[in-house]
Design a protein around this nucleic acid. Structure first.
Length: 376
RNA sequence: GGAAGUAUUGAGCAAUUGGUUGGCUCGCCUGACUGUAAAUCAGGUCUUUUUGAAGCUUGUAGGUUCGAGUCCUACUACUUCCA
């Protein structure tokens, strides 16, 4: 696996790079669609490949461990084969579930005891077994097991949690190095910076994570409800510490505007459920603002979903038709909206990359941020 | 022609022995959604009002009663059964 930093924007900290994996090249900055349980909800792999065309997608360790389980995934020959996706995959470790399933788990130094949201059974996640599970899932990039703290989070807790995440990282690395890749291609482990919204903790965590000398570095614990300004402030603090020559992944972000702002701060990789989830709930992202397609005002608007026509669905279908599908709870509506949103997100990061390479990123970004900050 | 039953806010249902109907579900309208317990969740949805609040309401018209969606009478509409 290799990361080549191609350009750094002179007017910002934005970067364009190239991450080469055994499953293909990832051009950064990149947005990674989320496919939690071995499916990017609402789209076929063929549509994903041909219409949306992301360089990499996400899976989730906690969810895949529960269903179908590591045994099945191993029998299948790994997640790529199981889900028929031959491009790169990144798996999150389950650290986010420590946060989002907070009422069904207990955190200890040893690890986290989970009550399954599927059948209520008890499971223990430790840095060690999370590495093993991720080896068996077989994603190209795997994540360290961390605690994603909520917002707001008091300083003492954030500090204690951060240190535990660091200790967990050491255990992750030790165990990762002890366990071989199972399917004949390389896997890289990304450590995760925590520290909530405290600059000193973030700096400290970034230093610790940078010292682990991993292939790439991730920023976690953001986009959990804090104001965007705080998120940007934390990104800035952290990127100042992280090595230039390694990819930086901001986990769980975000809105199109969040993504552009964080690209400007030096982030290379993003993932977020927003384009897919919001699509299923009737929200469309466009270059000119967001659309709630369920709104009455689209009832007789026969103009294309999106004049830009990034994906074929944009011009194939009208707003009135898409609204109709949503009002009737037709599955097709969610599929169309998902293809549209993911197509738009991919266009956004690809265009950002072009602008960075052309040296025009900042002007373009300012224009886009202004333009997208609207409801249609 | 005869008999029985039903009538509540867009729809469908609820509402103690008569004791504040405006409660529920759906629909509709509007929000929300950031490493997916999410095709989910929240709010609104009789009228007037900017809020606060005020007012009207259980097919129609009467009656009994301190008090009627609930009991009685007539009418109207619908449903079912018998001719």
């Amino acid at each position: 696996m290799q990361f080549d930093l191609l350009t750094t924007d002179p007017a910002s900290k934005a970067r364009a790079g190239k991450l080469t994996t055994d499953h293909g090249v990832i051009e950064t900055p990149i947005f990674m669609p989320v496919g939690t349980v071995a499916s990017v909800k609402g789209v076929h792999q063929r549509e994903l490949r041909e219409d949306i065309d992301p360089d990499i997608i996400l899976g989730n360790t906690y969810h895949l461990y529960l269903r179908p389980g590591t045994e099945i995934l191993q029998k299948a020959g790994g997640l790529h084969k199981f889900m028929s996706w031959d491009r790169p995959i990144l798996t999150d470790s389950g650290g986010f579930q420590v946060y989002s399933l907070s009422n069904r788990r207990k955190i200890k130094e040893e690890g986290v005891k989970f009550k399954s949201h599927v059948d209520g059974s008890m499971h223990l996640f430790t840095p060690e077994n999370v590495m093993e599970i991720q080896r068996k899932i077989g994603a190209d990039i795997i994540m360290a097991f961390d605690e994603c703290t909520p917002y707001p989070c008091d300083y003492r807790y954030a500090k204690r949690s951060m240190h535990m995440t660091h200790r967990w990282l050491d255990r992750c690395i030790t165990h990762f190095e002890k366990t071989p890749a199972l399917y004949g291609y390389e896997q890289a482990l990304f450590p995760i910076i925590q520290g909530s919204t405290y600059k000193d903790l973030r700096t400290q965590s970034a230093e610790y994570i940078a010292n682990s000398n991993a292939f790439g570095n991730a920023i976690g614990g953001l986009s959990v409800g804090e104001p965007a300004e705080e998120m940007y402030a934390m990104t800035e603090v952290v990127t100042a510490v992280l090595p230039e020559e390694k990819p930086r992944y901001l986990m769980g972000v975000g809105t199109p505007i969040n993504i552009l702002e964080n690209i400007a701060l030096g982030i290379d990789m993003f993932d977020c459920v927003m384009p897919t989830r919001n699509a299923r709930n009737g929200m469309l992202f466009t270059a000119h603002g967001t659309i709630n397609i369920k709104n009455l005002k689209w009832e007789d608007d026969f103009s294309p979903i999106d004049e830009m026509g990034i994906t074929w669905v944009d011009t194939e279908y009208s707003k009135a038709y898409l609204r109709h599908l949503f009002k009737c709870h037709e599955l097709l509506g969610m599929q169309i909206a998902t293809i549209h949103n993911l197509g738009f997100y991919m266009w956004l990061v690809r265009e950002a990359r072009k602008q960075i390479l052309a040296g025009t990123f900042v002007t373009w970004k300012e224009m886009m941020v202004k333009q997208m900050d609207k409801r249609l």
